[in-house]
Design a protein around this nucleic acid. Structure first.
Lengths: 215, 215
DNA sequence: CAGCGGACTACACAACCGTGTAGCGTCCTG
DNA sequence: CAGGACGCTACACGGTTGTGTAGTCCGCTG
């Protein structure tokens, strides 16, 4: 049940990467320092440069490693789901992201981890394809556009965890907060804010405005 | 139709604030420099300190000013809406945020602008109160929790603008991108991903899991 | 065993940043 | 008109940061 082994994970290089991911997640890329990362990893600052070349290259390496880790976890979670050990797709996706969600959200908000965002959109697109097969009436937009917007909205929650925790008055990283959040998300995902009629009316308004004000 | 005047806005202090908001939005708080801000504002770096005391205080002043600006724009947009000049609540809210959305999203993603997030949640809570009056069946969660999650999700879109623009292959800051995004958002808001039955089943699973694994 | 490459460290450097201080001009006021 | 408050600048300081360089230790190989 533990994270996959990866024999490399005991090397200094791996310890530096892990420390870097924690520092980037905690302080952001700009405020994190190579010396602080080296200290956490228990090595000299020169070794960081020796292994990764530069701070930016270290960041790239973290992103790249994250892509591989998430892909691996996702494959495993998908297999578990097919074997009936995980009840649904959302739980599988969350299980994939959770261990590194803090780094992931930081990096995404700072404009990085583009490959991972694309991958998440791809996964959501596939999921939506199944959804549209079951609900053919909901196919008025490009599934990939739809998936991209859904992905961005879903990521807004973990990105704004501190704000949400404050407003909800619960630490969302605890199991209590997770339960409250899950319940609320189920409510959000099952209660449309607009009826199809309202949406059609607003869409008509959009297109009228487009024709009226082409400039 | 132009932004409200504010006689102060011609002073060097105001120019510094405007420059700071642009720099913070463009480079993030940590990477933005007082010297760069001063240069953009056309003043010496010492004057920045003279007016605001410290970099953090300058940031606080930007957040505070933004709260007032958004509040003012929102009041005006609400009045316009009541006068029938703006067709809906979402358009009014967007009109309030748009001029400063880049700074706002940066600050939010970095954990700042808490007062503004709370205010947005409050506005959404009020809006949801009207919604629940019309749809009484959707009142199984605390409206404030619901509003907070919706707000966070809605903010995920502008926070991840760069990623979304890349995936959708359109610059979302242009009117063309805005139209595509608006259409997609209408689709998202009017198409629930879960039926009430599915949500109830998943919710039952959650609570069973809670009882089964209290630790 | 010689030697060679890679992991690793210690140290130095140049740049930059936030902050502090001293001082100049100007406008307002009593 | 004296004088002080205020807007504003110039300059210096200490600290930190990313990066560069030289050198040590160690294990492997021929």
């Amino acid at each position: 049940m533990a994270t996959a082994p990866d024999p490399e994970d005991l090397t200094a290089r791996a310890r530096i990467r892990d420390a870097a991911m924690r520092h980037f997640a905690d302080h952001g890329f700009a405020k994190a320092t190579i010396r602080g990362i080296a200290e956490t990893a228990g090595v000299s600052s020169g070794l960081v440069r020796h292994h990764f070349g530069s701070k930016q290259a270290l960041r790239d390496a973290c992103d790249e490693w994250l892509v591989r880790a998430v892909r691996r976890l996702n494959d495993q979670a998908t297999a578990d789901m097919r074997a009936g050990q995980i009840s649904n797709y959302v739980a599988a996706a969350r299980a994939s992201m959770l261990p590194h969600s803090r780094y992931l959200t930081r990096s995404l908000a700072e404009g990085g981890a583009g490959a991972l965002f694309d991958e998440m959109v791809g996964m959501t697109t596939e999921w939506l394809a199944d959804y549209v097969r079951a609900n053919p009436e909901a196919s008025e937009v490009d599934p990939r556009h739809w998936a991209a917007v859904i992905t961005a909205m879903a990521l807004g929650v973990p990105i704004l965890f501190p704000h949400l925790s404050r407003v909800l008055d619960v630490d969302l990283t605890t199991s209590e907060g997770d339960l409250l959040l899950s319940r609320t998300l189920l409510h959000v995902y099952s209660n449309p804010l607009l009826t199809r009629q309202e949406a059609a009316r607003l869409r008509a308004g959009l297109e009228e405005q487009e024709r009226g004000e082409p400039r």
